[in-house]
Amino acid sequence: MFEAISNNPYRNLRAPRVGLRRLRPALPALIFLFVFMVVPLSSLLLLSVTKPETGLGNYISLLGDATYARVLLNTFIIAALVTLVTLVIAYPVAWLLAILPSRVSQIFFAIILLSMWTNLLARTYGWMVLLQRTGVINRALMGVGLIDQPLPLINNLAGVTIGMTYIMLPYVILPLHATISGIDPAIMQAAAITGAKPRQIFWHVMLPLSLPGIGAGCMMVFVMALGYYVTPALLGGTSNMMLAEMIAQQVQSLLNWGLGSAAAFILLAVTLVFYAIYVRAIGLGRVR
């Protein structure tokens, strides 16, 4: 205790009591978030147990009713599928980016940033046009004779998966790239000199060392995908509706506020559980 304090006089210039005074600059932001986030969320929670009548009725019907349960299941399946597809594509790309000469990888990063920063609706619109029955992809496939009939690529699972994978890719490539670049090549050389074949080095050394990046990227994508609204709403179909879409529908179209709020809180609870696992594994400091 004593050591820590006097070793670092720069950081501990004020005693704890005075430190509270340093909380003051955070107050405007704190009050803002309290009024516009905490209060609305709390009243939403209240709605979920009071409308249409007091009790846990909304939650019971959400979890008990087959239609609603299917939406919940769908949400998990799509989120998991998108996470898996994204990871399978992102890992080799991140690997490639880590070993390419920086002039080439710079171009790739520019492409990633361009796709990431382009307006979400613009990107989704692009996929809507590309994937429609008479769209370029179907016409091209028919043109080369691979298919006779247009494939149903939109308003179904395929459309959602393509659209969401497109959006999520950068979120996995970037952390994975950071992790893989951080691996010391000497470790792999050490593995090779002791007799490991490239395949063994990959499975026993490189992959385990990139697990932190895989974990961070996948968790982020999974949590984001669970609550995604825009892309599933535009590219998905009614038969595989996701939770976010159902919440919006209940509140906006059906004016079923109680049920909508209850669904929102189920989504929030699930999100927070996964987020807590994520923080446990990676630490809050790295969550950015």
């Binding site: 609305p40 969320l41 939403l44 919006a248 509140v251 909508g260 989504l267 999100t271």
Partner: peptide, 16 residues
């Protein structure tokens, strides 16, 4: 706010 799904913030604020 980055973690809470936007749809939840949206309907909470909508009601608010």
């Amino acid at each position: 706010p980055m973690i809470v799904p936007v749809i939840i913030l949206a309907i909470a604020l909508y009601v608010f």
